[in-house]
Nucleic acid binder design. Structure first.
Lengths: 187, 187
DNA sequence: ATCATCTGCGACATTGATGTCTCACATGAT
DNA sequence: ATCATGTGAGACATCAATGTCGCAGATGAT
């Protein structure tokens, strides 16, 4: 791991705890002098964008490994549902590890990041849409609502783990079941 | 409405759009000079805390008007469910109007705000717990997860409205149904 | 008319974070 | 031994946001 990568991951860890940590704090977290931090990243913006990219790569890998595109194209309900559950399970981890990137607003100012975000989101929307057509998800909800609901629940996951409200091994089940069948008791 | 209140509501409106807006921007949004803003609020902290208090008052009113405590104490499933639906509908509005307070981290540094937050949260947790015991909500989920899921979905509501993904008149139904029965199609 | 109060305006001081620079030291390759 | 490279330490400059102050004009009550 290059020192640049070490800095990014250390900064992410620190920012997950304190989103407004100063560059000095991030340097300290990386075990590096402030000057060295600036040698690798011209400014805070550059560093946070690097973190954003890292998060997106992780997200993209989650989509790839779950086989989102193929499942969406297949139209096979069983396969779509399995993929969906698989994806959500992985996204729970991503939310936990990259929570900072999940909630930070400043990242929207980087066009490259925004563009990639939209591509990734589109792939997810395609899966949700396919799930609706295949009868896996109810089709009387806007796809974008479904997407935003997932996003919100992922923030719930992040907070639950942050505050220690829920054990890590339970959180996947809670997320998936809440998303698919809600919190209501079966009639 | 006193000018102090006008400033708070204008600042809230502005911060809902741009959470990092400067004091100068907030003064402008309130149609007031920067000096006048500082005459009313010694610093940014004081202003954001005032906003936080406002949001909490709104939240408290939502709990009161829905009759959360009485419903929880009654143990009556029908009443609890009606109260729950009612509460969520109101909270959707609160999330829309007070989104800034919903996501801003800096508010956690004010002890008074934190204390009141915990009291309000406790009332909600009591309702969720009662709902679980009454068979309205499934009882195999930690109450705190339920609470965090609501919180997350409210962020989903906020974003959906912010980006125009969902019409305001639809969002209540989407929230309530997603929360209670999930996004999955009925088997 | 007079007085109290609030406000806009603009100048000024402060502050905390940020970015830059220099120099000395450590490491490792040749 | 020498050289290249990367780093720590600390001084320094900069900058944007923040907070303060004084003065003059507006408003409104008596």
């Amino acid at each position: 791991m290059t020192s640049r990568e070490q800095i990014v991951t250390a900064a992410l860890r620190r920012l997950n705890e304190e989103p407004n940590a100063s560059m000095a704090a991030l340097a300290e977290a990386a075990g590096v002098s402030r000057a060295t931090l600036h040698r690798h990243f011209a400014g805070r913006q550059e560093l946070t964008v690097a973190i954003g990219r890292l998060a997106q790569e992780r997200w993209e890998r989650a989509l790839d490994e779950a086989g989102v595109d193929e499942a969406a194209a297949s139209g096979d309900p069983a396969r779509i549902e399995a993929t969906l559950r698989d994806l959500l399970a992985t996204l729970a981890d991503v939310a936990h590890e990259y929570g900072y990137a999940l909630t930070e607003h400043g990242l929207e100012s980087d066009p490259e990041l925004v563009a990639r975000f939209e591509r990734l989101e589109a792939r997810e929307l395609a899966l949700y849409g396919a799930a609706q057509r295949a009868g896996v998800l109810r089709d009387d909800m806007p796809v974008r609502w479904v997407s935003n609901a997932v996003y919100g629940l992922l923030i719930g996951v992040r907070d639950s783990l942050r505050w220690g409200d829920v054990a890590r091994r339970d959180v996947t089940r809670l997320l998936v079941e809440t998303f698919l069948t809600g919190t209501g008791a079966r009639a």
